[in-house]
Design a protein around this nucleic acid. Structure first.
Lengths: 133, 133, 133, 133
DNA sequence: GTGGTCTAGACCACT
DNA sequence: GTGGTCTAGACCACT
């Protein structure tokens, strides 16, 4: 399920978090679904179980997944909404980045392009009028 | 000159780098100007000289400032251009962020707002005099 | 692995850099290989870890090795090519030296001898098997 | 007389040494000639007299120039020969450089080119067939 | 005064 | 175990 790059500078536990979030936001994992067990991920990706547990715990604390002792981890009801709200904080980061780029004399249009490109290539961001009918 | 928060999660040497880059891009420090001496910053901000040196060295490696042992550090000629080019890499980060926000269902307009706001509050990004008429 | 002379005029961190570069160019260390850990080198050669880190960081910045926090340092893919390109800048130093020797009236032949000698004693520079026939 | 770059990373005292050596080897300064006084150089180039003295002292120790208390510094008889002999040690540096370049896979021809170029552009190194007749 | 190297030792995050 | 940041303090070279 996961694609883990042990040579990356982004910590493994963060790679797992990011990917679980994507799975949930994109619908690959639905609310109430069980997620891969710690042991399962551990053996399949040769990752220390402690590392996986750290990722799961962090998502548990944010109310995205929850542990059922003896059974495993499950996606919370309302996880999608919780995640969406959570991501709103990234707008501040967009602002910070924009300030830095503005100061460097890079035109705002260059940023707009990146955003348009990102939104047109992302499922949820794509306009899908057909779905309404 | 600097505003250092030793409790911040961003390392002190990175805080110094960021701020020096701002000073150079905003014109507070001009090319060929001498920048505050390692010792000066050290005593004024109660930061270990090695920490400041680390920041200065990193900017030296990027061709933004250069050391003249026995005399001090100076802003390189062409530092502004070098910095601007360097900052272009942040556009990739904008893209990455936009993808994440798109997936979270946050409308592109929210991002555009952040950018417009950031650009209008930044000197270099501010509208030209003509707008006043 | 390293041969460190704390009394040398060349800083310890430069000695480490030079030797790592040799190991990589000569194939003693291959691309993707892990290099000795900071702590390992520290205890084996009685050198402060910060000094070793400084050497490793410099090679990291040049794209020769890269850090994976929690796991160690590894030789980058393409490190040999990167190093070769990097060394091209030494040709300018050869020119500078040659000018100085020319002015001192030392015949060019003396320099040619040094080069021939150096190239015949270096693996990569050594003549190919065909020459034996 | 001197061309001093206070922004250079090569120490000012070394710049002075290098240039005096060139002047002597090229004949701009002849043996027994007086060289510019410390005070003179100091005011003309805004260099601390201590720095100039350091350069002169080093050449004095090598037997290239000598101080006549109350009168100034003079080029020693035999200075040209002394310098030529001194420069022979640079051949070792050529060897070291050649080894490094050989290991990096740079062809010996590239080094030969540099040397040929340097020798053809240097007065003393230039062939002067007329002298033989 | 300036920058630069190094040590000893503490403490942190990630695996 | 791994790398990374920081301090306190010594000591060096150059101006």
């Amino acid at each position: 399920m996961f694609q883990i790059d042990p040579m990356s500078r982004t910590p493994i536990y963060e790679q797992i978090i990011k990917q679980l979030e994507r799975f949930i936001l994109s619908g690959t994992l639905s609310e109430r679904d069980q997620i891969p067990s710690v042991r399962n991920v551990s053996v399949n990706h040769s990752v220390n179980p402690v590392t996986i547990l750290k990722a799961y715990n962090e998502l548990d604390a944010k109310g995205i997944i929850h542990a059922v002792p003896g059974r495993g981890y499950f996606v919370c009801e309302g996880a999608v909404d919780a995640l969406s709200r959570d991501k709103l904080s990234l707008l501040a980061e967009v602002h910070r980045l924009a300030e830095e780029l503005a100061l460097a004399g890079i035109p705002a249009e260059s940023l707009f392009e990146q955003i348009t490109s990102a939104y047109s290539s992302t499922k949820k961001g794509r306009s899908s009028p057909d779905d309404q009918g």
